[in-house]
Every structure is written in structure tokens, then in C-alpha cells.
């Protein structure tokens, strides 16, 4: 999984801690998410996408797993 969370977060000028607080998770979860090491639930992916004003398929690229 390739994650684009970091780019979108930078565009919104948010820190990892701010995003984590906004979506109700720990900062470590955002860290692993940005590194593409953690597969979020649909609920969390949707929440992050909403907060970053984008869509889930733009945030996460699963093309390498298909």
C-alpha cells in the first residue's frame, strides 16, 4: 500500500499530532499510516479523507497489491 497521507497533510499544513487528534487516534497510528505500514479501517480512512478534504482512493494506492 502506498500512502499519500503525508502529502495531503502537508498541503493542509497540519502536524501528525493535529491530524491524530482530529480523527481520534494516537500519533503513532498516523506515523505508521504515512509509512504505509498500517492498513486503516474503512472508518478511519474515511475520517482522514474527510479531514484532508480528499477521497480515500487518492489517499491510499493499493495498485501494487492487485
Amino acid at each position: 500500500m502506498i500512502s499519500h497521507v503525508k502529502e495531503f497533510r502537508a498541503r493542509m499544513d497540519l502536524t501528525q499530532a493535529q491530524l491524530a487528534e482530529a480523527v481520534g487516534v494516537r500519533r503513532e497510528t498516523i506515523v505508521f499510516l504515512e509509512q504505509g505500514k498500517y492498513n486503516p479501517s474503512l472508518r478511519l480512512a474515511n475520517l482522514i479523507a474527510k479531514h484532508l478534504n480528499t477521497k480515500i482512493d487518492e489517499l491510499f494506492d493499493f495498485s501494487d497489491e492487485v
Binding site: 481520534g24 487516534v25 494516537r26 497510528t29 505508521f32 486503516p40 472508518r43
Partner: peptide, 10 residues
């Protein structure tokens, strides 16, 4: 403390 309720990874 620091644990956030509902953190799915946790």
C-alpha cells in the same frame, strides 16, 4: 492518561 479511546490500532 495518553491512550486515546477508540484508537483502532491500539
Amino acid at each position: 492518561g495518553q491512550k486515546i479511546e477508540g484508537d483502532e490500532r491500539n
